[in-house]
Amino acid sequence: MRQSRYAPLMTLPGEAELSALRLSLIVAGRSVAFSLLPAIGIAWLLTRRRFPGRTLLDAFVHLPLVLPPVVVGYLLLVLFGVRGPLGRLLEAAFGIRLVFTTSGAALATAVMSFPLMVRAMRIALEGVDVGLEQAARTLGAGPWDRFATITLPLMLPGVLAGTVTAFAAGLGEFGAVITFVSNIPGETRTLPLALYSALQSPDGEAMAARLALLSFGLGLAGLIASELLARGLRRWLGN
């Protein structure tokens, strides 16, 4: 009897798949860790401050949304490549090399998911009543104090949403990563890159299907977890 075409899905993921999964989680996790604080800072600047060049900064931050990811990867290569100005500086000063490394994959992912994060933080910040910050001011709270005790706690649901969205998008970043750090097993071959490689090889169909299923499950679990967390947060915030 002919074997069912779904049989490959029933087998346990092998070393290659697990490695891709692990790498994806590391890359997405690092990229989120890199960009969380800058995203909050820039979102705060864009919503709460009026300064010359604001529109330009806004456009610059959102550029990765409209540029082809390959272009972003290329730009990173130019800047952070072995001969790029920043790449040379990093290598000389800290011995850090980004090209063809997991760190480089995380950087490319961070740049690509940054606008998603900033956007979520901005929406969250716009939802925080400036009046409450003013009230905190009259009660003697300085800028950092009111940010830590009023603004940040009240925007936490948005911070969470932004983090989850950026993390989920980071798991699947393809174009910028493959352009900047190539497709090296165990170093830069994340889930989408592994899936792409599997499709390129003649007998990789089963592996591709398993990787796709893995991505699907991961995404679903992440979204459900974030929704539950957001609910808990909102309860804690008193709404």
Partner: peptide, 20 residues
């Protein structure tokens, strides 16, 4: 002088209590 250093108690029209 910054508002937070004036020691002014301000009761706003809409109480503006911290919800959290």
């Amino acid at each position: 002088v910054a508002a937070e250093r004036r020691q002014v108690g301000y009761v706003f029209q809409e109480a503006r209590l911290f919800p959290h």
